[in-house]
């Protein structure tokens, strides 16, 4: 759990270290991922009906909630896969262009990527939860005039990039 700081309204709580485990299906090469809190990332191949899922790779990551000290409410962010920084996006892509313009005004843009649901779709984070996340990071910024702006994934980044590309190229801050 992150150290508490009485000066801030929002606090990161229930920090759960773990792994983003990426796997692929042997026959169709479909890919998917899940979050594991096991001590070591599971690498065993397993069968799921007619499908056989094989381990592809992992990255260390974590899950967390954000507590509002004013209201006592805890906002879970278990569906947040990671934050993509604009400067890590492909040149000329929408988040890169928007981020570049915003950075000129000392606003650093990130895009919140969410986990895939069972149907393969990704539901973007709702605006109210994004506001909480933005408040959490912005109230800690010390550099005068600097702002963090975390946007929902309106850019379809989750669909545009495979997991491998996300981990290697995209600048997903929850991965390393």
């Amino acid at each position: 759990m992150a150290a508490a700081n009485d000066a801030f309204r929002y606090e990161m709580v229930n920090v759960r270290p773990g792994y983003i485990v990426v796997e692929h299906e042997r026959f169709s090469n479909a890919m998917r991922s899940y979050f594991s809190t096991e001590d070591t990332p599971p690498v065993e191949e397993y069968r799921e009906g007619a499908k056989v899922w094989k381990y592809s790779g992992f990255a260390q990551s974590f899950r967390f909630d954000v507590m509002d000290r004013e209201t006592g409410e805890t906002h879970p962010f278990a569906d947040l896969l990671g934050l993509v920084w604009w400067a890590g996006c492909r040149d000329g892509s929408e988040p890169a262009v928007i981020g570049d313009v915003a950075a000129d005004q000392k606003v650093q843009v990130y895009v919140a990527l969410t986990w895939e649901g069972p149907d393969g779709r990704r539901a973007p984070l709702a605006a109210e939860r994004l506001k909480v996340l933005n408040r959490y990071f912005n109230e800690r910024i010390r550099e005068p005039g600097k702002k963090i702006l975390i946007l929902p994934d309106c850019f379809d980044l989750g669909r545009q990039f495979s997991y491998g590309q996300v981990m290697v190229d995209l600048g997903l801050t929850a991965l390393d």
């Binding site: 990071f137 600048g171 801050t173």
Partner: peptide, 9 residues
């Protein structure tokens, strides 16, 4: 590169 993204955040 992700170190920079995190450090910036």
């Amino acid at each position: 590169n992700n170190v920079i993204a995190a450090a910036n955040l």
